[in-house]
Amino acid sequence: MSRAKDRVGTWIGWGFFADLANGLALTFGYMFSRPVTMQYPDQEKWLPYPRYRGHHFLKRDEEGEIKCVACELCARICPCDCIEVVPYEDENGKRHPAKFEIDTARCLFCGLCEDACPADAIALGQQYEFSSFSSRDLVIGRDDLLAKPGKAATGGGVVAARLDTKKDVRVETKETQGYNWWRNIRRT
């Protein structure tokens, strides 16, 4: 009996376009909900988690000496053959790279160089904006790699940012920990 009643109710609802009204109400509600898009690169950007594999950088030891011993293991294991290392021996008989170039245009950011390194000299960090007008600019040398920032301690959020095209295309930000975007887009 109640099932028949339900069916009659549904038919009456259809007669007054209840289903269409439901759809319209849903889209109207969405119209005033918060957009899930990030205003990248004008206002905010995604700051990756600390474990993210972004830009490469070389590390120094406590004396400020480059950690790399130019064993070329990273160059060997690299699946796309984008690391080029030329070793030299200094006055103490230690091996160091005279040339250490990474072609980030070819790199696939697998992080195998970081895993293979016996001296913990190379690692991948948080930056991911590499756009450039020339693929030659994407070949990064030893000194540039040494100057890059290291592993980030924080991340995994959306931070306020600003597009800077004066010198280089970089989305600048001063914040280190943003709001959790994933929680933000969840609808109950």
Binding site: Y30, S33, T37
Partner: peptide
């Protein structure tokens, strides 16, 4: 309207 109904912002 299209943007906001689809949780985007539209032209900005």
């Amino acid at each position: 309207v299209a943007g906001h109904m689809q949780q985007r912002m539209g032209p900005m």
